[in-house]
């Protein structure tokens, strides 16, 4: 549905987007994840024909954004970073205007306005001036505006920013419910959002795609193994040497990394990562007890997307992961 090849965008000197490629299939919800300044907004602006790319091509539903912009524009709904609202209009009036702008037949507009207002929970402020709305409501009106013409592709730039937790939840539900009939691409730097809303993720950092996969795959592939958290204390309030404990843990077969999380006079918290497919929990427990220490805690910790994200976007490792 969306196809991007070698897309590059340069502003005077900064390269905002650097030769990125990706594809999104019909019906997918794709999370576009990246830190500030990664180039998410820039990519979305190119996809929506707001600005042309410096190099490369992008197409939506088979129509090139540069050669057939009108066809592309007819098929997309776009929620920019700041919702594009006219403060002097009432909500209903605004949605009617956008409906006309998107080329809906006049006869259908009142019904569509009613539908999307209900869907985005702005029906109760239909007659209110937009300038008098709270930020959350503005965001919802922005979302309503994006879906009014029932577009094939929805492009949402940080759709949940500025919403309260309940609204965030509702918006995510809304986006998921839209996925049946639409292809959705949404940008965010909030990780749980991707985990909860999207089925695919494209991680972008400093203008390059550093990873793209299904959310489930990415989580398991990058750290095939689980990590476990353990707390080790000395018996009878003894002092315990961190170095000794760490050394012992590292010697256990299958352990790939031991990270000290916190430590005090009596005990130390470690996080132990193991190689893929190895369960080291029993070995760790035995080893600690045999050394004459106490094992106060042992629990598995899920590797969150957040860690993957930080790892991918923070370091040179990014390039390795891509392969």
């Amino acid at each position: 549905m969306i196809k991007v090849e070698g897309l590059t965008k340069r502003y005077d000197r900064t390269v905002a987007v650097n030769a990125i490629d990706f594809e999104v299939d019909k019906g997918q919800i794709v999370g576009f994840l990246g830190p500030n300044g990664a180039g998410k907004t820039t990519t979305m602006r190119i996809l929506t024909c707001f600005m042309p790319p410096t190099e490369g091509t992008a197409s939506i539903a088979g129509f090139d954004v540069q050669k057939q912009p009108q066809e592309v524009k007819r098929r997309i709904g776009y929620l920019p970073e700041t919702p594009p609202l006219y403060p002097e209009m009432e909500v209903e009036e605004y949605l009617t205007f956008v409906g006309r702008l998107k080329g809906l037949p006049s006869a259908e507009i009142p019904q569509r306005v009613k539908d999307v207002a209900e869907r985005c929970a702005v029906a109760d402020v239909r007659k209110k001036l937009i300038s008098k709305l709270s930020k959350g409501y503005r965001q919802r009106v922005g979302l309503a505006q994006a879906i009014i013409h029932n577009p094939d592709v929805l492009i949402l730039d940080e759709p949940t920013s500025g919403l309260d937790p309940k609204q965030i939840h509702e918006t995510r539900d809304l986006i998921r419910s839209l996925a049946a009939a639409h292809t959705v691409i949404l940008s965010t730097h909030i990780l749980p959002e991707v985990e909860q809303t999207c089925d695919h993720v494209i991680i972008i950092s400093r203008g390059s795609v550093v990873a793209r996969d299904s959310v489930a795959n990415l989580t398991s592939r990058l750290r095939g193994a689980e990590a476990i958290a353990v707390e080790v204390t000395g018996r009878n309030q003894d002092q315990l040497d961190v170095g000794a404990v760490r050394q012992k843990l590292e010697q256990i077969a299958g352990v790939s990394r031991v990270v000290l999380k916190s430590s005090n006079d009596h005990g130390h918290h470690f996080e132990i990562e193991s190689l893929q497919g190895r369960n080291v929990r029993a070995d760790v427990a035995r080893s600690v007890v045999e050394s004459g220490w106490d094992l106060n805690e042992l629990r598995p910790v899920a590797v969150s997307l957040e860690e993957i994200f930080l790892e991918l976007t923070a370091s040179e490792k990014a390039t390795e992961v891509k392969q």
Binding site: C49, Q70, K73, Y78, P83, Y86, P87, L101, G103
Partner: peptide
């Protein structure tokens, strides 16, 4: 200023 240019310029209008 309002950012509504983004709406106009991404709508199927010349």
């Amino acid at each position: 200023r309002q950012g509504t240019a983004e709406l106009l310029l991404t709508s199927p209008v010349r």
